[in-house]
Design a protein around this nucleic acid. Structure first.
Lengths: 146, 146
DNA sequence: CTAGGACCTGGAGCGCACTCCAAGTCAAAG
DNA sequence: CTTTGACTTGGAGTGCGCTCCAGGTCCTAG
């Protein structure tokens, strides 16, 4: 793997190092962003395509994507929404609200709060079902070491 | 909706009533089974097709399915596995073990125990991610009613 | 005898969230 | 100048778990 883009090579490597040049300070290539967030480069492009990135990710002169520290934080938050089961559609809605700037904080709060409610509901449901499975496990356990 | 199959109409309705005739005592039509288990008739046929039913469901002379109380319990358990995130493939594996009869209880136990482990892992992951989302919620809350 | 309704079958279609492909660009190294 | 390799794009393909469709059977009611 190359380290950063040739044009901006000076800042490609030590991520978020405050001592590097202006233009590309602390930016990451898509491969680095993938490593940093735990999602594939495919998925990073896909997320941008379907409108999850608020604004399009910055580009080097080579058209290669340059992820800022803020982008990385945003993607990380997106993964939290995904891992708690939020559909892409709703994440896109949240991204649109976030990109609209200040003034819709109440909407964003409502969206997250409603999501939280559903997650807790689902957690509870899973726990109840798991309890039933546990009983079955206990039955097998008894039947085996009887 | 008709109540039971014409041929076996005598036993279609009062589900699991011990006083009805021999052949079809306490059996349910697919629609009744769907109502009893909370899955669609489509899904009930699909589950049978992909081998989740241990043995094919019994049929009336009309070839219509007749679900026994045991079938209903089995489907109910299947739904618990599904709702805790077990893939159909693995449910099919469990069904094959169960249909093989006695002697593989250790395998079934291992399968369920491993599933349980993954579910707990996943629950924990969801909870951790939810905690991060909760922090974001708190930030919005503070920003709104400041 | 006809119509209606629940059911049957094999197979096609769908929504989701990726995941991959083909063809092309760009910049540094050989 | 050519090669290399990480990237770009639009679009096609994949796996999962259903969900639906067309054409047919069967039985009761009118």
């Amino acid at each position: 793997m190359e380290l950063g883009d040739p044009v901006l090579a000076a800042c490609g490597e030590p991520a978020f190092d405050p001592l590097v040049g202006e233009d590309c300070a602390g930016t990451l290539t898509i491969a680095e962003a993938a490593a940093a967030t735990g999602v594939s480069t495919h998925t990073l492009r896909y997320y941008e395509r379907v409108g999850l990135m608020r604004d399009p990710v910055a580009r080097a002169t080579s058209q290669h994507r340059r992820y800022s520290a803020d982008d990385i934080r945003w993607v990380t938050f997106l993964t939290r929404l995904r891992m708690t089961g939020m559909p892409i559609r709703e994440m896109a809605r949240y991204a649109r609200l976030a990109s609209a700037g200040e003034g819709n904080e109440a909407d964003r709060l409502a969206l997250l709060t409603e999501h939280r409610r559903r997650v807790l509901e689902r957690l509870d449901e899973v726990q109840r079902n798991l309890a039933a499975i546990d009983k079955k496990i206990a039955v097998y356990q008894e039947r085996i070491d009887r």
